[in-house]
Design a protein around this nucleic acid. Sequence first.
DNA 1: GCGACAG
DNA 2: ATCTTGTCGC
Length: 227
Amino acid sequence: MPWFSPDFEALSLPEARALQERLAGLVREEDVDKTVRLVAGVDVAYDGGGGHAHAAVALWDVASGRVIETATASAETHFPYVPGFLAWRELPAVLAAFGRLGGHPDVVLVDGHGRAHPRRCGLACLVGLALDLPTAGCAKSVLVGSFSGLAAERGARLPLVDRGEAIGAVLRTRTGVRPVYVSVGHRITLEGACGVVLRASRFRLPEPLRIAHTTVTSLRAARIRGA
DNA sequence: GCGACAG
DNA sequence: ATCTTGTCGC
């Protein structure tokens, strides 16, 4: 990850944008070469008025439907939240958490978008490029793009379109519940990404992401009181 | 100018 | 994301 710098705080908005435009060209859309047995989920939580970021990674076993490992890390945030630049704010804590993970996931699900981004380079793409692992974005709301007429049944799916381009998929993971927005992060296809998300979902969000979320929430609580 | 805007 | 209690419903 030659482009990775722990000094993201030093990046100006124009520089961050230029870097994303360049990195978007490095994203590879391809079939995951091996059977997906371990799926990781990553999530981030903040405290200290957003000054501190806590990240949690949950490694989930597809066959048993159980978590086999979790890893966490914290880092100071040096980049504000600006729509389209979320990666520069969350990447430090996320990469630190992965550095503490012993197992090796076949696919990583990220809470946010991948190619469904104004510059086709969201958080999921950056995480995939930095770790050189297959990643997929699974966001709870749209950043860019539109769609209409999604069926209410679990499994229903429609392309998310932006400027005439299909940048991701709107996927219903549970009947009658709001859909999630899936997009390619790196080294995976949209088909593959949707397949993993659907197979890992019992409720609206994939289990790995739900577990990462509860894990990071408790970590933050522990950190706030001092632990 | 007015709204939209991942987490 | 975060600030916040109870409550209605599957």
